[in-house]
Design a protein around this nucleic acid. Structure first.
Lengths: 335, 335
DNA sequence: CACCGTTTCTACAACGTTGTAGGCAACGTT
DNA sequence: AACGTTGCCTACAACGTTGTAGAAACGGTG
């Protein structure tokens, strides 16, 4: 059965609190007492009841990570790094899937949040700053561009600059008809807006006009959407010599569509993505992309959360920027 | 601030327990009292403290899913389905990453488990039946082949039959030199052993000899391992006309290596995988594979856990089998 | 009108933990 | 010898919730 402090205390012949003190590493315990208690703990295989501890201390040692979808590789990889970074603080990570739906995101942000976890790392797709402002409690760190001036700490990368740089890479290779896949009209598409801005910046700086027919929207950013958008561009008669996809899964879908259309990458059309997911390192051809430092993003997020938990909860929201770099592979440069 | 039952009770002018009764849907509460309480709850935005509830009731409403790695697409997709299936029971899912390391798996199986969660769905890689036998508490459902006669409920698919069928598919297409990638020597490779068994069954039934030089080991089952194993086969002078990779990521790596070697798939070499991850539907070429019904696996696992929680915890361990089917795509059949 | 059963509500204790306050030795200082 | 200080330990209360027991109010019955 499961044992309590009381059982250990009886076995060791001390008070309950003394056992608690040993468990928590309190200093003023005589070595022989400590030894006796530790022995009893080992014999009974005692483990603290986290709920009781939380009830008393107000901490669970559990933080949540809420992402739109786990089977989007970017979020899966990010989740992995967050779990690792949190482990350094002795935290367990509860991973939550919001599906990017506003209602579910609100539930996560207010509901579960309220009492079970110490803090939340949150990558919202649909939630607004107002939704967040109404929340009372749990310390939160936001990821990504969705909520721009929210009430919480945030970790971002410079999407505009990154998008500009990868577009410049295409320009330097001599491409002039550069399509973009992944634009979004809705407010939800904050990342899309910024990446589009970087793209147009680069074109303008190169003296090229923005050509609307070269920009294809994609409501979601899955492989299927990328393939559909690419097919759309091709059948509409637009003939790009390069494509900037706003994330890697879109790009993988686009590669597929180009392949089906009998076009070679990069000889006929160059392709770049954004995110540097593992698939892109093994796709045919391998994918040139913007590689955000996901490990660093996770570390910064966990760090911000830790500071918020231990420090001033009312301090003004901080925003940290994580680095990125370009990963240039076969989809822009033939081997 | 955060409110308690007591605050709601004071506001509504009733006792704490009456509020608790309203929250828990107890029947004998006068409609007007109930209304008053509900109003107070809404005004204060009251939410129950899960830790306190757990302490009192012994239930948290949280289950854990422990998988080796989240950025292995198969597990990410599975996690998604588990979260969805669990939501139907009102459960939150805490997702844990073990890295497949025995020590970490033991921590998950005994540690966190002990007090924070109601139950565990566990996909072990390194843990043995003995490790599990020593555990006292939490109801558990195992996924996969690692622990064959453990003390807990289990959801599996028939790996031997599935591997045999996909191999038969290659045989029917006329392939005779069928390589296998992913064999493992260690005890940990239970899936590998079963899939290898299915492969050899099919060969034997077709009157072919088992050729050891055609079987390549892979300690992990990532893309990089698949690519390395395929390169190894090619440089060793073995010339297979088909390859059965024991999972899809291995197969994607193998596709990559074949591409680099200038071999066409499926014309020169046919390739099949196992798992039906999303990448395989968009790879070039698309990947023929065994598609386990992941949604069903998740549902069955959650269902088993629910029965265990509500029912007889000492009942003998049950084992359920989930269906699978073959997904035949371009990597075995040119368009 | 006394009685009984049902409905509705309340007071109290308990879940396992830790913070607070305090007690008792043992020691050194005056 | 009296005193304060320190080290080690214990007793008690409290965290927010719900189960148990029972009290109060109500309606119906003999």
């Amino acid at each position: 059965m499961r044992h309590r402090l009381k059982d250990v205390a009886e076995r060791a012949g001390v008070s309950v609190k003394t056992v608690s003190n040993v468990v928590n590493g309190y200093v003023h315990v005589r070595p022989d007492t400590r030894a006796r208690v530790e022995e009893a703990i080992a014999e009974l295989n005692y483990r603290p009841n986290l709920s009781a501890r939380h009830l008393r201390k107000g901490r669970t040692g559990v933080i949540a990570l809420a992402v739109p979808e786990l089977d989007i590789p970017y979020f899966a990889e990010l989740a992995r790094y967050v779990v690792t970074a949190a482990a350094a603080y002795g935290w367990t990570v509860l991973i939550d899937q919001t599906g990017g739906r506003r209602e579910q995101e609100r539930v996560v942000a207010s509901g579960i949040t309220d009492h079970l976890i110490d803090g939340l790392i949150f990558s919202p797709l649909a939630l607004t700053a107002e939704d967040l402002a109404g929340l009372d409690g749990t310390p939160m760190v936001l990821l990504g561009e969705r909520v721009e001036h929210g009430p919480a700490d945030r970790v971002v990368i410079d999407n505009v600059a990154a998008a500009r740089e990868i577009t410049e890479h295409l320009l330097e290779l001599g491409h002039r008809r550069i399509a973009a896949i992944g634009s979004q009209r809705t407010d939800e598409g904050a990342s899309a807006r910024l990446r589009l801005a970087g793209y147009t910046d680069a074109l303008r700086a190169a003296g090229l006009d923005y050509d609307e027919t070269l920009v294809a929207p994609a409501s979601a950013w899955h492989r299927a959407d990328g393939a559909a958008a690419m097919r759309g561009l091709l059948t509409s008669g637009v003939r790009p010599d390069a494509v900037f996809c706003f994330n890697d899964t879109l790009a993988l879908g686009a590669l597929r569509a180009l392949h089906e259309a009998g076009l070679r990458v990069p000889e006929d059309v160059a392709v770049v993505g954004f995110d540097d997911i593992e698939d892109g390192r093994f796709s045919i051809p391998t994918l040139s992309t913007v590689a955000p430092d996901k490990e660093r993003i996770a570390q910064l997020a966990v760090e911000l959360l830790a500071n918020r938990l231990d420090g001033d909860r009312a301090a003004p929201a901080k925003e940290l920027s994580a680095p990125y770099r370009l990963e240039l592979r076969e989809s822009t440069q033939a081997r």
